[in-house]
Every structure is written in structure tokens, then in C-alpha cells.
């Protein structure tokens, strides 16, 4: 298998300025092609900026939008790109979307499933959640799994993508930096948490993990960058600097996936039917359709242990 050159576009999108961001994507795609990249990854909402609020409905695009078609055309021939934007469905729901474009076509769209609406986040107010977590075939010769930011804070996302055939898990993010505690490993609580997650997922799914996080500022929020590539054994192959805008190139050997999966056959040993059975039981119990079979007598619903009075 040929080495694959990845291009991580750690950019600072301009908030609400679709045309400027489209132009920047075209420029970077050309630059990546020049540098021999096979896959270019842009961050979450790289075409629109993150803190959109009511602008969301003003920068949304249908999947047949000619501007997306022109961007996809820039991947022909022989390139792949992951871009992210606000997708408007035919019934006018707005999604945070990440699309895989290859050889001139829009191949696959992932709609962000988990929309954080707590703390500094307010996504569910403005966006509809996606309903699918699916891997997609790719011209790269392996399956690709797309996820957007918060999707990776739910362990089911990387697991489903890997079991569905993804050997490269791509997470595009707009992660705002916060918690400058000196006690945290990376000097930034957010970065420390993300790094733990990505290493863990790469190791547990024996897959490449590509994380592209934006930089720049929207309102109060500063995005910390720190894009990374983690190999299927959990080793960090590349870490981009925090806060610096730039496009970073990383060469990876996709055959590492095979070597790691032969050595450490974790995916082979997964038990999806067991997981599905237990999930079905939990769903029935949580819906009150069956008694909680693991609870002590006297426990209230949703709490396994009887509360002492």
C-alpha cells in the first residue's frame, strides 16, 4: 500500500463569511495537491465558522448547492477531502455536516449526532441532530469514518465506525479552549482530555485517528488547534502546534492497520450481538417496559441501589 500524505488544514474560519471561507478552502486544496496530499481534512464548520447562532440559517447549503459541487470538483482527480458546513435538508432542518469529497464527487455526508447543549454550548437550539453513524468506502482503499467534535465524546461513535469498516477515523472539531489549570498535562484542560480520548480510541479500535481542530476566535471562544494523527497502536504520529494557523502534512502507512489488527485482534473479539442484546434490555427497562433486572429491591427507576431512608 502506498504511503498516504495527509494534509491537516488547521484554519481560522471567518464567522458567517461563506464566500471567504470557500475561497480559502479552494486555495488550500490547491496547495495540498501541489504538496502531494491524498487526503485534506478541514475542521468542523470550516466553511462557516462556529458561533453562528441565528446566522446558521443564512449560511446553510443544500447538498446540491453548486458551491459544494465546485469544491468537490477541486478533488478531481485523485484527491480526497473532508469539509464541514451547515447542511439544510429538503424539509429545512439544519445540520452540522462533514462531507467526504473524492475524485470530484460528494461521496458521503455525516450529520453531527451529538449536539452539546450545556455549559458554553448551545447547539441543539440551532441545529437538528443526525441519525446515523456509518463508515463509508473511500478511494484510499480503506473505509473512512467521519465524526464531528462532540460525537467523539460518546464511546459508541468510534466503536460503531470501526466495526462498520472504518480504518481511518476522522474527527473534525471546533473545540473551544478552556481551563488553563497548570495541573493539566497540556496546559489546557480541553487539550488534555481530547488527547486522552484520541489515543484511547485509536488503540481500542486499532485504527488511525485523524483529529483536525480549528484555531482563531469567535466571540468569547478561542479555539486551540492541536490537530493530531494517532496510529492504530495508539502512538502519536503528529501533533500540530496549539493556536497556530497552518496546513500540516503527515505521511502515514495504512498497512499499519493490518499489522496492528493481526497483533492485537481487539475488533475481531468484539461482541456486537452481546452489546446489542444488552442495549435492547436497557432500552426496554429504561422505557419502563420491563423491570430493572439489575436493581436492588426498593430502588427507584434509573438507580440500581435502594436509597437508605
Amino acid at each position: 500500500m502506498q504511503p498516504l500524505r495527509l494534509a491537516l488544514a488547521q484554519i481560522a474560519p471567518r464567522l458567517g463569511d461563506l464566500e471567504a471561507n470557500l475561497a480559502r478552502h479552494h486555495d488550500l486544496l490547491a496547495e495540498a495537491r501541489e504538496a502531494g496530499a491524498g487526503l485534506v481534512v478541514f475542521p468542523e464548520l470550516g466553511l462557516t465558522g462556529y458561533q453562528l447562532q441565528d446566522l446558521a440559517g443564512e449560511v446553510s447549503m443544500r447538498l446540491d448547492d453548486p458551491r459544494l459541487a465546485r469544491l468537490a470538483a477541486a478533488t478531481a482527480p485523485g484527491m480526497s477531502a473532508v469539509v464541514s458546513f451547515v447542511e439544510e435538508s429538503a424539509d429545512h432542518r439544519l445540520f452540522i455536516a462533514a462531507a467526504l469529497m473524492e475524485d470530484g464527487d460528494l461521496r458521503h455526508v455525516h450529520r453531527k449526532v451529538f449536539l452539546p447543549t450545556y455549559g458554553l454550548f448551545d447547539e441543539r437550539r440551532f441545529f437538528a441532530p443526525g441519525d446515523a453513524i456509518r463508515a463509508t468506502p473511500s478511494r484510499l482503499g480503506v473505509g473512512v469514518g467521519l465524526a464531528v467534535c462532540e460525537d467523539f465524546w460518546h464511546v459508541s461513535t468510534p466503536q460503531l465506525l470501526a466495526l462498520d469498516g472504518a480504518q481511518i477515523l476522522i474527527n473534525v472539531s471546533s473545540s473551544p479552549g478552556r481551563d488553563l489549570a497548570l495541573s493539566s498535562e497540556a496546559g489546557l484542560g480541553t487539550a488534555t482530555s481530547w488527547r486522552s480520548l484520541m489515543r484511547t480510541y485509536a488503540q481500542l479500535t486499532t485504527s488511525f485517528v485523524v483529529f483536525v481542530n480549528r484555531v482563531g476566535v469567535d466571540e468569547s471562544l478561542s479555539f486551540w488547534g492541536g490537530s493530531e494523527v494517532i496510529g492504530p497502536a495508539g502512538a502519536t504520529l503528529f501533533s500540530a502546534p496549539m493556536f497556530d494557523e497552518g496546513m500540516y502534512f503527515v505521511d502515514v502507512d495504512l498497512a499499519d492497520v493490518r499489522r496492528e489488527r493481526i497483533t492485537l485482534p481487539l475488533l475481531r473479539d468484539e461482541r456486537p450481538e452481546l452489546v446489542a442484546r444488552e442495549w435492547r434490555r436497557l432500552i426496554a427497562e429504561r422505557a419502563g417496559l420491563a423491570a430493572d433486572s439489575t436493581a436492588e429491591p426498593g430502588a427507584v427507576p434509573g438507580f440500581d441501589v435502594a436509597v437508605e431512608q
Binding site: L15, A181, G187, L188, G216, V217, S222, W224, F243
Partner: peptide, 24 residues
């Protein structure tokens, strides 16, 4: 002790914040 911050990160983040606010 619990309030100690990474001053290098703070300087960098705040510099970006200031530049971003002015540019926008």
C-alpha cells in the same frame, strides 16, 4: 495552588483573542 495557570498558554490564547476581536 488550585488557581495556578499555565501562563504560556494564557498569553498565547489572550493574544489571539485580542487580535481576533480587533480584526473582526
Amino acid at each position: 495552588a488550585e488557581l495556578a495557570i499555565d501562563t504560556g498558554i494564557a498569553r498565547r490564547l489572550i493574544a489571539e483573542f485580542i487580535r481576533g476581536q480587533l480584526r473582526q
